[in-house]
């Protein structure tokens, strides 16, 4: 398993992007690509080739699930884990997201301090170890 290094984060809220940036760069020492919309994500993520994509579900324009669908046409997801971030989780939703190919779901508000560790755990699980 390769070490977790590159993370792409897609969220339309500037404050959330800022907090995730500090959390992931400062604590996790990851290389981070922040995108403010699904559109930006489609343009920049394939080239960045991240290990994990953190994708906000509810965004204006392209929402998370749509962004993921369109990303699939542009890149290979064999080595990339997709994690949705959402404030609303109904019982059926987690399964729905997983059926779209999401590896897991992180509930908002997330714990900034623990986010990096959480992603590391998911990365290990994603690689089946």
């Amino acid at each position: 398993m390769s070490t977790l290094q590159k993370i792409a984060h897609v969220d339309d809220d500037e404050s959330i992007r800022a907090i995730a940036k500090v959390a992931l760069e400062r604590i996790g020492k990851f290389t981070l690509l922040s995108c403010a919309s699904g559109k930006e994500a489609l343009e920049r993520i394939p080239e960045f080739a991240p290990d994990i994509i953190l994708l906000d579900v509810m965004m204006p324009g392209l929402d998370g699930p749509t962004t993921l669908k369109q990303l699939r046409e542009k890149m290979n997801f064999e080595k990339t884990a997709v994690i949705f971030m959402t404030a609303k989780v109904q019982s059926s939703e987690v399964e729905y997201y997983k059926s779209l190919g999401a590896f897991n779901v992180i509930l908002k508000p997330f714990d900034a301090m623990g986010l990096s560790d959480q992603l590391k755990n998911y990365w290990v699980q994603f690689n089946g170890e």
């Binding site: 809220d13 404050s15 907090i19 204006p60 404030a87 508000p109 997330f110 900034a112």
Partner: peptide, 24 residues
């Protein structure tokens, strides 16, 4: 709706619990 959804999410992330719950 969009505005309150967005604001609620960040408010809760930054620890503004009461405000976040009001917005939710």
């Amino acid at each position: 709706y969009d505005a309150s959804h967005k604001l609620a999410g960040s408010a809760l992330t930054f620890g503004y619990k009461d405000t976040g719950i009001l917005l939710r």
